[in-house]
């Protein structure tokens, strides 16, 4: 084990700012990208389903008249 305590761990031998600055920004980027691609996909899906519902309803009205 490299670390005697949590304080020791966060301190990173005096390089805490640099090490945690790297890992934190990486984590934020990865998290943001995952959220963004999933939203992009579900956004497209929702839009397509909405358009389809609208056209199906439209077609239904036409046959009634």
């Amino acid at each position: 084990m490299n670390w005697a305590s949590w304080g020791d761990f966060w301190n990173m031998g005096g390089y805490g700012l640099y090490v945690w600055g790297s890992y934190a920004v990486t984590l934020v980027c990865v998290f943001a990208e995952v959220v963004s691609v999933r939203r992009q996909f579900s956004g497209q899906m929702v839009r397509l389903l909405r358009v389809r519902r609208a056209t199906v309803r439209g077609a239904g009205n036409e046959t009634e008249t």
Binding site: G13, Y18, S22
Partner: peptide, 11 residues
């Protein structure tokens, strides 16, 4: 390099 080298695991 001490613990600063741990950055390379991402870099």
């Amino acid at each position: 390099q001490g613990d600063s080298y741990r950055i390379i695991f991402i870099h």
